[in-house]
Simulated assay, not measured.
Amino acid sequence: MEEIYFLTFREARIMLLSGRKVRVNLDLRKTNRSHAVLVKEDKVVFPDGSEVEKDIIKKIAKDENTVYFLRGGRLYKAAIATDGFYKLVPTIPPTIEINGIRMHRTKDTNPLKDTRSKVDTVKPKEGEFVIDTCMGLGYTAIESAKRGAYVITIEKDPNVIELARLNPWSREVFTSQNIQLIQGDAFDVIKRLNDESFDVVIHDPPRFSLAGHLYSEEFYAELFRVLKPKGRLFHYVGNPGKKYRGKDFQRGVMERLRRVGFKGVRRVEEALGVVASKP
């Protein structure tokens, strides 16, 4: 397999501050592995012989919002510009940013802690079945699988899946025997799943303005249908302000969940969401 070296402002600064030879991590700190690179007067030489001009390394050192990667001797940004702009952001682990909106909380936390706070609300266990409605970079699916659960994760956007395939922290989505990825809109995919087939639902949708149908009573009824009796739901709602268009947004979510049959519906402030269960 062709080796990929990842570069952020952190590694670039180490190279510029170090002498002729330096060891740096080149997998976005997914592991503790380091590589020896050769820092010359006008360029940096990587283990496979690839060379990057020192002036480019200086530019990377100033860019705290972009992940770069070196593959086959060519340097790229970990970004996709199609009908929108998608990029990996060099938090540890990385988050994904779509049109300037980050998909994980990063203020006073990091994407891994953010993920664990959500998964901890429903505590998937060994042998349980989990549906993760909106995969993103797959951290929720990976965390649930590490706890022994079997996970079906759904992702609508092929650009997000492409960045997940690139991201070292997302690798288990594509290699774990406990994770199955389905590409599609969760609103449609859920209708094809069997009644009472999941112990846990983790619903972490995009903001309401981008995916309002995933906050609908119709969709919540499908989540209720696929959950087993005593099954648990976590629904990330975020913090769009106490009022959203004149209404308490979380309260509206909770009311719709109750109307379709969920019980024990309550807010979980530390995870910025709502939990509920099926009787």
Rank of each mutant, 00 (worst) to 15 (best):
T175F: 03
G127F: 05
Y244A: 11
A271E: 04
V275Y: 02
I4K: 12
P206A: 15
T153S: 09
L227Y: 09
E172R: 09
A145P: 00
S216K: 01
Q183G: 01
D185Q: 09
V45D: 12
V39Q: 14
S18Q: 06
F85D: 11
R105D: 09
Y150G: 04
V189H: 05
R259H: 09
F9K: 06
K107Q: 07
Q183L: 10
S170C: 07
A271I: 06
K118W: 05
L166D: 11
A79M: 14
N159C: 13
E64P: 02
V260N: 01
F46E: 12
A149V: 14
R116S: 05
V189M: 05
S277A: 05
F224Y: 15
R147N: 09
G100N: 04
M254R: 01
N239P: 06
F198Q: 01
R266A: 13
V151N: 03
R10C: 09
R102D: 09
L163E: 02
Y139A: 06
E126F: 14
D63R: 09
F234R: 00
G72V: 10
V200R: 09
K113L: 10
Q183S: 05
I179P: 14
N167F: 07
F46T: 06
F249C: 01
K21P: 00
Y5E: 02
G241R: 02
L26H: 00
D108W: 12
K87E: 10
E41R: 10
G273F: 01
G273D: 01
E3L: 07
G252E: 15
T91R: 00
G241C: 10
V67S: 03
V160N: 01
L75K: 05
A271S: 09
R171W: 07
K40Q: 10
I161Q: 00
F219G: 01
G84S: 12
P111D: 05
Y86C: 01
Y236P: 01
A149C: 11
R171Y: 13
D132N: 11
F234S: 04
L163Q: 03
G127V: 14
R33T: 14
D188Q: 11
T153C: 08
L17N: 06
V52A: 00
S170H: 03
E2P: 13
A78W: 12
R116I: 14
E41K: 11
P168I: 10
Y215F: 15
L166V: 00
S216Y: 04
A221H: 04
Q250I: 12
D55F: 13
R20L: 02
G231D: 04
R74N: 13
L75A: 08
E51S: 12
A145F: 13
V22R: 14
F174Y: 08
D108I: 08
E126I: 12
L17S: 10
F9H: 12
D114I: 02
I57W: 00
Y139N: 01
I190W: 05
L16H: 06
M103K: 04
R256G: 07
A145T: 02
D188R: 08
N167A: 13
